[in-house]
Write a protein that binds this DNA or RNA. Structure first.
Lengths: 122, 122
DNA sequence: CGATATACCTTGCTAACCAAGGTATGCCGT
DNA sequence: ACGGCATACCTTGGTTAGCAAGGTATATCG
């Protein structure tokens, strides 16, 4: 039995919160990645740093690389290799014209939903 | 080959958008359900109508019932049966005290993320 | 020649939406 | 009486996607 801290089931609240934050991240990630790639080109590693800042959570490589592959496969971004004077080569990604259209649609949807949720809850 | 409409890969944009909207819904649903149950009691069927309005998408029963089961299992909501003068009985759900704490934490996280994303993109 | 840093990628596990299909209750028209 | 319909509940199977863990490769430094 864990130490009783004045509220039962705080662990359950924490667990539920973590799972929810994961789901929310899943919902926002593609949007945030496209926004960031519109702002400037990135390679995988530099994206992780940029995203971790925006989403306030450490992004895993196992998240970013498959996501970039999917976006490239679907034509929303394209990529080219750039050899570095020092260290391993970097794969840079740019948003495509289709990616811009997708981003616009996402932004519109986001604004819409956000407006609905903005109506104060309590 | 589909009709060419002036832009290549519009289908890909639409498909990507649908998938993304699904993911976003997954991220928002628990939050919205708790908010709605804080506002007033609901049974499963009446929740579907309320949520469809907020999220601008038809909510499926196969989404809501498992979600309500999970929330009840985790102690975030509780339920009681109410026999109706006509038709099948309804299972009403109420938010619990733990559920209120979860909702507060979600709201704080939501506000935080939303503020970060609010910084205009383009 | 190891150790470290940078950079890429894949596999296996898990969470969760939702189309489809199933069960049960009560009302209504024939 | 009975078939159809609306209301209400629930479960199964397919799909999407994050992420911990583990793998590969390049270049630098001691």
């Amino acid at each position: 039995m864990p130490f009783y801290r004045g509220h039962m089931s705080q662990d359950a609240v924490d667990t539920s919160l973590s799972k929810w934050e994961l789901q929310l991240r899943k919902g926002l990630l593609t949007f945030v990645v496209l926004r960031e790639l519109k702002r400037e080109q990135h390679y995988g590693y530099s994206l992780i740093a940029a995203l971790s800042k925006v989403l306030q959570a450490e992004m895993a490589e196992g998240t970013i690389y498959p996501l970039l592959s999917r976006l490239q496969r679907d034509g929303m971004i394209d990529a080219y290799w750039q050899i570095q004077p020092s260290g391993p080569a970097r794969k840079y990604y740019r948003i495509t014209e289709a990616g811009m259209r997708l981003l616009s649609a996402m932004q519109a949807h986001w604004d819409h939903v956000n407006q609905r949720l903005g109506d104060s809850p309590s």
